[in-house]
Design a binder for these strands. Structure first.
Length: 370
DNA sequence: GACTCGTGGGA
DNA sequence: TTCCCAAGAGT
């Protein structure tokens, strides 16, 4: 292929060489993913479905490919197109999203589907600006959909691209300030012929070769052009600010079990932490380790028994919840609460932390049914 | 620009 | 164990 005469060439030629090397690598080593159209399919004129591209991109925000796969399959099975999702019950969408995290994505997903369904032809906008205006679609996702689904030469910059580019050019500027510089490099390297494949190739390279730790530089198609390989340690890049330490909170959670196995639940507020999701009654989650987390802070009087303590780590704090369980014959649900039948529990919109709580009180309860 | 917002897996 | 972090967006 290309001779290594980079030092004799202009920057644009080098950038073009990088794109070619990357795409040649991608043709052979690309990952096969449920939402992806392969390079050979693209060459046969098979275009990706914008709905599936969009859905996968939303799910993949700050979420691993392996975590997304089963959710993606479940969603396209239930709601095969944007019209179906637009018509779906929001509660059903939250239930299907439960466990995937960052639940505002699910609400924005539904809102976005409804907006798109009202557009001419019920189709997604086919450019960055149009996409960027939709709920849940930011700079990255707009560029990703524009390039992958519509072949637009958009600069797709995600965490993978940031890592690859900062290493490629030894960019020591810490993130997020380095983003401007990174983006400029991507714009220059962008292969106008295959924008979508270029974007996905960069991400595949970052995910499989140019990894955060112990990158496999010997297998990298760009190693000859990589500044970090030549001049130092690729793991030094990208430079990120130190993380704030994670505070500890604690509280108590109350699992009330009816004689038929139903469990008392309630709905969290629409916004904020675990917004719109379902939970068992709990105390406030206080920063006081000596806070009152006993049975006396239960939502109603009952024969509360300790059922252990669960721990859960959120992005910006860690949580210990003392779990209490009580059997009750009362069929009454306190204001704002409802009974969920034993067979329905597994399908409720329960975030992982709440499944942990219920499992501590009733082993297997969230795994039955459905 | 600095926070908030989940979860599970890997080193 | 502890830390890092994964195809970021909204405020």
């Amino acid at each position: 292929m290309a001779f290594r005469t980079n030092h004799r060439k202009h920057a644009t030629d080098v950038d073009g060489t990088i794109a070619t090397l990357l795409l040649d690598w991608y043709d052979v080593h690309h990952r096969e993913l449920p939402w992806r159209t392969t390079p050979s399919d693209l060459k046969r004129g098979i275009r990706p479905d914008p709905y599936r591209v969009w859905l996968s991109e939303i799910m993949l925000q700050q979420t691993t490919v392996e975590a997304v796969k089963p959710y993606f399959r479940a969603f396209v099975d239930k709601w095969p197109d944007v019209g179906a999702l637009a018509a779906a019950d929001t509660e059903d969408v939250m239930k299907a999203w439960a466990g995937l995290g960052y639940y505002s994505r699910a609400r924005n997903l539904k809102a976005c589907a409804q907006t798109v369904a009202l557009l001419p032809g019920g189709r997604f906008p086919d450019d960055e600006d149009g996409l960027r205006a939709l709920p849940g679609i930011g700079p990255y996702t707009a560029a990703a959909i524009a390039s992958i689904a519509f072949g637009r030469p958009a600069a797709v910059v995600d965490g993978n691209v940031e890592r690859v580019v900062t290493r490629l050019f030894s960019i020591a500027t810490p993130l997020p300030q380095a983003k401007v510089e990174i983006r400029a490099h991507v714009v220059r390297m962008l292969a106008a012929t295959r924008p979508g494949d270029f974007a996905q190739a960069m991400m595949d390279l970052g995910a499989t070769i140019c990894t955060p730790r112990r990158p496999r530089c010997m297998l990298c198609p760009l190693r000859s052009d990589c500044s970090a390989v030549v001049s130092g340690d690729p793991e030094l890049y990208p430079v990120k600010p130190a993380k704030a330490e994670r505070p500890q909170r604690r509280g108590a959670a109350f699992v009330a079990v009816r004689s038929d196995g139903a469990v008392l639940l309630r709905k969290r507020p629409g916004k904020g932490l675990l917004g719109g999701m379902t939970e068992v009654p709990t105390t406030d989650w206080t920063s006081r380790v000596d806070g009152a987390t006993g049975a006396d802070s239960a939502p109603f009087a009952a024969n509360w028994q300790r059922a252990g303590t669960i721990t859960h780590v959120f992005t910006h704090f860690a949580l210990d919840l003392d779990v209490f369980r009580a059997e009750t014959t009362s069929d009454q649900a306190p204001d704002g609460h409802f009974w969920s039948a034993a067979a329905d529990l597994a399908g409720e919109a329960l975030p992982s932390v709440m499944k942990k709580v219920i499992e501590a009180a009733i082993p297997g309860a969230t795994k039955r049914g459905r």
